[in-house]
Nucleic acid binder design. Structure first.
Lengths: 246, 246
DNA sequence: ACGGGCGAGTTGTCCGGACAAAAGCGGCGC
DNA sequence: GCGCCGCTTTTGTCCGGACAACTCGCCCGT
């Protein structure tokens, strides 16, 4: 048995798929052009329709071709779509805290949205939202950030069960069977508000960074808005985004 | 023709797929369990093997089942994997500038990496990298940010052709046929360095925000590192991440 | 000139068959 | 007890056929 026999032979449909991929890549069938029909491929290549169809199905799966009953197989891309999306594995990557920090809540209750808050939350001025205020504490008891969260009234029942560890939005997703579709995040820097400076044991008007985050549901509605003040000194907000498959 | 006839009947394979999906979701076949064999399904459902195979192929495609020749079809997930990845449509979303800003380069040339730069770039101290310094200018001529870029020596030939508009990493990708796989971004706040404060027409030690970004290639190598100082006043770094399909 | 209907061509669904390749299981030997 | 071998079972590849559903172009009627 010669070394040549060790190499497993690719299935016929895979070889036909590759031939068609090459033909498309070389521009023999440009974008918008029709590939040969199934019948033509069967006749030309001397294979069954079943085999041709499997090859074509894979081209569809790869995003190179679109097939329409009665019309034929049309080339829609010269190359497999390459991902341009860069992403993070989960929202938790935005949150800045591992499971070793705790949220100390010092106030929770329904409160009317002010003008600024209504704009942030995309709610109505005066509308009653669940307002939660607290301090994020590290493992050593050191305060890391102040936090100020507004939760949509639809999910206000979560109030008594807010998690000390882990993300509030996850708890809401689980409890109410909803799903965050989008997160809008804004980062700015400026002097710490007086209350935040005190809570974080920093001088009044020391520089801080404000992380504002709005979680949006699939239907476009705001789930919650959070504002977190961090002391700027020694704080770096890091993020790692990876290219996603196309 | 009654209204009932208007509803197109789902193909047989789709109905079988759905039955199997329901059975998996209800826990009738738990994760790790074997589904009935093709032969069993054909006999039970009184359909051809072709139809059963198509239904099973779709379960594989959906990520619920794995099939192994000789062994059978094993359930690997109870529910279709739900995306946890949140992403941005492209890196351009990180860059802060539309096409209406320009990069005014005031220095470019090979320079050795210092200690701090070597750490940022994940290169060697003393290694010669292409160093580019400049000012990001708005449409009205107002300075928006200072920028300081280190480009890997492998791509130093881009030096004379750095784009005034648009992203440098795109120009490098195109010219050298490489691909950014990952971006690491770090945001911090602190007093503007003297040179940056002057260039941005701000008081010395005014608060600024530093955006550091490292672009990593598919092989893990650094393409470039950029550091941009923005005045903190009036500057908000915003980002919108959307949940990606699973 | 425009719209509708019809026919030819093309893909989609579904049937049946055959052989190959891989995995699993049981029995036997060391 | 472990490993090897042979047989059975299960999925993978590929063939062929038939009918349904859809698309597109052409022709005819208004």
């Amino acid at each position: 048995m010669s070394p040549r026999d060790v190499t497993p032979r690719a299935p016929l449909y895979a070889r036909i798929e590759q031939r068609l991929r090459d033909a498309i890549a070389e521009g023999r069938y440009g974008v918008g052009a029709l590939l040969p029909t199934e019948a033509e491929l069967c006749a030309t290549l001397k294979v069954s329709r079943h085999t041709v169809r499997e090859a074509l199905r894979r081209l569809v799966e790869a995003g190179l071709v679109e097939r329409r009953q009665g019309a034929g197989s049309i080339v829609i891309a010269r190359e497999p779509p390459r991902g341009e999306v860069f992403g993070i594995p989960s929202i938790d990557g935005l949150m800045r805290y591992g499971d070793d920090t705790r949220l100390l809540i010092n106030h929770r209750g329904m409160a009317p949205l002010g003008r600024e808050e209504a704009a942030l939350a995309q709610g109505e001025v005066g509308e009653m939202w669940l307002s939660v205020q607290g301090l994020r504490i590290g493992q050593d008891g050191r305060p890391l950030a102040t936090t100020d969260i507004l939760i949509h009234p639809r999910f206000a029942a979560i109030g008594p069960d807010l998690p000390e560890r882990g993300a509030i939005h996850h708890a809401i997703e689980r409890r109410f069977g909803v799903e965050v579709a989008e997160v809008v995040q804004e980062i700015s820097a400026g002097p710490l508000p007086a209350a935040a400076a005190d809570a974080l044991r920093r001088k009044r008007r020391a520089t801080g960074m404000l992380l504002m985050r709005r979680h949006v549901l699939t239907d476009g509605q705001t789930l919650l808005v959070s504002r977190n003040w961090h002391p700027a000194e020694g704080f770096t907000y890091a993020m790692r985004l990876r290219r996603q498959e196309g």
